[in-house]
Design a protein around this nucleic acid. Structure first.
Lengths: 209, 209, 209, 209
DNA sequence: CATGAATGAGCATTCATTCAT
DNA sequence: CATGAATGAATGCTCATTCAT
């Protein structure tokens, strides 16, 4: 568990595709060694087993997302604008690292079982949104919703599944174009909704009689 | 290995929690045998191996979802109303089967790699929404969006992640109440969006100058 | 840990020489599998790992010794005669199973660390002697010694090391002749001692002033 | 790898207990490094591998024994007296180094397989006794026995097992008192034997009719 | 001299799966 | 039909040892 030398760290990324393709359980440490050029025993010298490889990889992804979203979220704009920026930021990072994303989905169960990852997951994806929702209500740029927790979850789902799905399609020739496209679609959905405007301004919560 | 006796089938559900908790790879056939009371060799007599167990379990879940959503979607209402119904239907089934849901997410990677499951997944979750979106544009109850594919994906994500998250929280005392709550939140989000109404009637797509 | 089928048990003896020669740690399960003709996985199906193999083998030896000695000890003779018989019995069994004996010595440390073996060891080797010493004092056939515990230990050592050493020499052409020879030497030593008779009838315990 | 610095040598003794407890195979060089405070690679710098550690430790013990016994044996007394002295000397050293003794027994198999140790073992333990037996016959202080080799072995066993057993009991508060006690018991046994004096002076070899 | 870092070679153990009954 | 017993195949991980500094 020593902190891996930068060189090894970078080599290790060579394993992401493998894991994305076959899942961690379907990937032998031996395969990882081969794919990365790092001898098996050396991997074990630096990392605490197979899970730690996944953990290392995903931690990195999660940090990148948390970082980018963090920046997007801390601008001076209103919450609504920052939400759009956050969506774009998250999708931008996801599409730039399709293999890591796929590895993440593919082993979501395991990721959830790794305590460190579980919290990183939460703080990278869910918490910024939750905060933004509250901010938006405060600054008037977002509506007050009945169940903010559930809505934040849904928003997170809307963004993430879009990103994941794009990642699964395979690496795109132009990730940032894809990101922009998906980003626009997601923002449109979560900001404006799908309902056609009602005659008299806005949709009241009368959908459940 | 078709049609296992009803009794076995029902016993097999006892394995869902195990798989949900540890993932399929983390669950030995032996464990499944123990948890269900079905002797290992008997499982093999009826099913084609470990994957088949997961496949059996998830196929069932997927069929239930596809069925419930199918019903919701085929009513005579407008698409917007049917979308709400579909959301409620999907969440209803998911929350009734939290372990199956968790097993599904946890082994999403594997599920994706099992051809039969992959298509069932798509047709249970994604396709009905896609269709509804189109219907809504046609009958005027839903807005035309720029990128219907991406939006459908997002909607699917919004619903599913909400449901999954609820499932992960652990079995609820009152699944249908939860379902209603989540269902309302998700519908509110995807139909009306989060943005506060703009001064002059609705939000124009001018958010990207 | 099921009770091994007789056939396997007998095949397993084929491993004794191997273990005697190289020690248990120097013997791969694979080697044992090869030497005995029992597939590796089958060994694991019946036994709980490598140690269990040694344990099984030695338990058997110890039972044989305990049995033979037990018979020798329960005759109606006086203790002195029974002690001679016990010596002969123990050496007889040991020389009949030189490989098991060598395995026992070679891995004495490990044997000691296996709780079951430790007690079997004690009850096969040490306890009968201890008992005989006491009996001998009672029936007048053996002298009262100052420290019976220490003496019993020494007697045990005198017998066992002789036997072990003979076993280490390699399998003899005529084990029972060897046994008789060693048995006579050991009995002579422990019964009569090495000191030449003192002028005035026997050697008094004046060697420690 | 000859003559390690005195400091290291003394640190190395810290490993004796470890090895006594777990056996050499159960002790990782890493463990030894930790227990002694000597870095792993430094051990290798001075010693030729794991076996060499054991060899170093045991060689030392054996030299101490050989030395002490040598002194005891070279006095001007008769062989009988010198035998008593040798017993006391051997037990004295053994009880002063209980961990080394246990390490020796525990890895007797391996010790036997290390050529240098095997001869040291012989010359420390067995040979002095053999010699004394012969001397005793010559000077009339010890009886002529039928099979001097076997008897010497037995004597060696009587002494050594007593010492070992004491060592295994754990370090005593007063090793030299223990040594004296065991020494007396062993001497009593091997000199006078256990048989009660026969009516007419001494026991004739009539025990095998 | 000493040692932190790196690794080659090995191996016990696991488990999905088969099959005789 | 069902299943206890048996096993082939696979692999994660360990550790003694080396070597550059």
């Amino acid at each position: 568990m020593r902190k891996l030398p930068a060189k090894l760290a970078s080599q290790l990324y060579g394993a992401a595709e493998l894991i994305a393709e076959r899942g961690l359980d379907g990937t032998k440490i031996e395969d990882i060694a081969e794919a990365t050029g790092i001898p098996k025993a050396t991997i074990y010298y630096h990392l605490d087993g197979k899970n730690a490889v996944l953990e290392f990889l995903l931690t990195d992804l999660l940090e990148m997302i948390a970082g980018a979203v963090g920046v997007a979220v801390s601008s001076a704009e209103d919450a609504r604008t920052r939400l759009e920026a956050a969506v774009a930021a998250q999708l931008g990072v996801m599409l730039e690292h399709p293999f890591l994303c796929r590895a993440l989905v593919g082993d979501l169960g395991r990721a959830t079982r790794l305590p460190d990852l579980a919290v990183a997951l939460r703080s990278a994806f869910y918490e910024p949104i939750e905060k933004l929702l509250a901010d938006g209500v405060a600054d008037g740029s977002l509506r007050q919703v009945a169940d903010p927790g559930a809505v934040a979850l849904s928003v997170f789902g809307a963004i993430t599944v879009a990103g994941l799905s794009a990642a699964v399609e395979g690496p795109s020739a132009d990730p940032s174009a894809d990101a922009a496209r998906f980003s626009a679609a997601v923002s449109e959905l979560i900001l404006d909704g799908l309902a056609t405007p009602r005659p008299r301004g806005g949709h009241e919560s009368d959908d459940r009689p």
